[in-house]
């Protein structure tokens, strides 16, 4: 029992190390784009347009949108890391290395998800570092910020994993980010408070999970939120568990990877 636990721990470390090595090796494709995109957001939305908008919920516009921009980067990178990495292992058939080994499905999922979380955290740190050049950083609840980043990265890493399991070609791994994640992110309160919307659209916005994530992180950083923080964190926790269970059964069943 103890030996099996130790073996699984070594396997988990191996997968995480391999995942981190992968995204660090290709950093111009994985880490740099997030920095450039966010820098453009800071310049255009913050400096050029933001200066004309003034304040939102008592904060300068640029300060108001920084939490959302960090969340956007974490979401995109955590998802992209796992979906491309896991699909590549399927495409090159190197997934067979893992499947013939005694690694449990829990370890495989956890390894890929931790890899996604690591990339999400790296990008969050880089984008936060960039934002210091533009704003004074308020830190209302650092613990909440960290918890939210971890939960969001975990949710989207699991989402990427499930997408990769079902994907049959490279087009299939870009459909969800393009047609689902990007619209939800832009409508998820990154650039505005939902209190600016008519009441009907405020209600519709509450269905958007990214709204909960952005607001929970904004609460941690600025101390303001359109959503109750407890509800947001509870919601994210439930989504994480549900996605994990789904990913586990897909992998155990061998969907898309075993005949």
């Amino acid at each position: 029992m103890k030996t099996a636990f130790y073996a699984n721990l070594v396997a988990l470390k191996t997968i995480v190390r391999r995942e981190v090595r992968r995204f660090v090796r290709i950093w111009p494709q994985t880490l740099l784009p997030a920095c450039i995109t966010t820098l453009l957001y800071f310049l255009i939305f913050g400096q050029l347009i933001g200066s004309r908008i003034g304040e939102m919920d008592g904060f300068p516009y640029l300060t108001y949108i920084v939490p959302g921009l960090i969340m956007m980067s974490v979401i995109t990178n955590a998802y992209g890391n796992v979906v491309s990495s896991f699909f590549s292992t399927k495409f090159h058939r190197s997934i067979e290395e893992l499947l013939v080994s005694p690694v449990s499905p829990h370890v495989i999922i956890s390894g890929f998800v931790l890899g996604g979380i690591c990339r999400g955290l790296c990008v969050a740190v880089l984008v936060s570092g960039l934002s210091i050049l533009f704003i004074d950083w308020p830190l209302h609840h650092p613990g909440v910020m960290l918890l939210v980043v971890l939960l969001v990265a975990a949710i989207f890493s699991l989402g990427g994993f499930i997408n990769a399991v079902f994907a049959r070609n490279f087009d299939d791994i870009s459909i969800v980010p393009t047609f689902i994640l990007t619209p939800l992110t832009y409508l998820g309160g990154v650039f505005y408070s939902i209190h600016l919307l008519p009441s009907f659209w405020q209600g519709v916005s509450l269905v958007n999970p990214i709204l909960h994530m952005v607001n929970a992180f904004r609460y941690g950083m600025l101390g303001i939120s359109d959503i109750h923080i407890g509800i947001a964190i509870g919601f994210m926790t439930l989504v994480s568990i549900a996605l994990y269970v789904w990913a586990y059964f897909l992998l155990k069943e061998g969907r898309g990877i075993r005949h």
């Binding site: 030996t3 130790y6 073996a7 699984n8 721990l9 070594v10 396997a11 470390k13 191996t14 997968i15 190390r17 391999r18 090595r21 992968r22 090796r25 590549s88 292992t89 090159h92 058939r93 190197s94 067979e96 290395e97 893992l98 080994s101 005694p102 690694v103």
Partner: peptide, 24 residues
């Protein structure tokens, strides 16, 4: 296996060490 099924981007040494890691 009959067909090559390792990550072609990784170094030979890393491929072996990683594989051993999967077995604990």
């Amino acid at each position: 296996p009959q067909e090559f099924n390792f990550s072609v981007f990784e170094h030979c040494f890393d491929i072996l060490v990683t594989q051993a890691g999967y077995y604990g």
